[in-house]
């Protein structure tokens, strides 16, 4: 079994990047591997927007990720600063009463991704516990 951490950097629709990331996650889990977390950075934060509005024969990545989380209980974290800069806001900020951040996603600091990798670095000798970071 391999442990993975997934780093998504592109917005949905514009590129197939996030779709590939999700398919990778699903395939990895089916093959018996583990996805520790998916982290959204740069334009990747757009994956979390409940404002995504696509026809039923198109792919709504926010919905797909939310379903993925429900089925597999994988944390979906996004960089809170990257999100704020791109208009993705959680509703707990009083100056921003409305939220377009889907409930499946958690706004966190950058370090959330790296602390997992760091823990990994300390256990490098134990190959089974090593987390592989994959950037999409």
């Amino acid at each position: 079994m391999q442990r993975f951490a997934i780093f998504v950097t592109k917005s949905p629709y514009d590129s197939r990047n996030a779709e590939s990331a999700l398919r990778f996650c699903e395939a990895a889990i089916t093959a018996g591997h583990r996805i520790e977390q998916v982290f959204f950075y740069q334009s990747g934060v757009h994956n979390s927007s409940t404002f995504l509005d696509l026809n039923t024969d198109e792919i709504n990545m926010c919905k797909r990720w939310s379903e993925f989380k429900l089925a597999n209980d994988v944390p979906l974290n996004l960089c809170v600063t990257a999100a704020a800069r791109r208009g993705i806001v959680a509703e707990d900020q009083k100056s921003k009463p409305d939220s377009n951040l889907a409930a499946a996603f958690t706004p966190v600091g950058m370090s959330e991704y790296f602390s997992a990798l760091n823990e990994n670095a300390k256990n490098e000798k134990d190959a089974a516990s090593t987390i592989k970071s994959i950037q999409f």
Binding site: Y41, C79, T81, G109, M110, S111, F114
Partner: peptide, 20 residues
Amino acid sequence: SSFAMDAYEAALGATNVGLE
């Protein structure tokens, strides 16, 4: 583009948890 800044900030974020 924002790439240069994004690289820079990711680097700073990573050092926060003691990662080299």
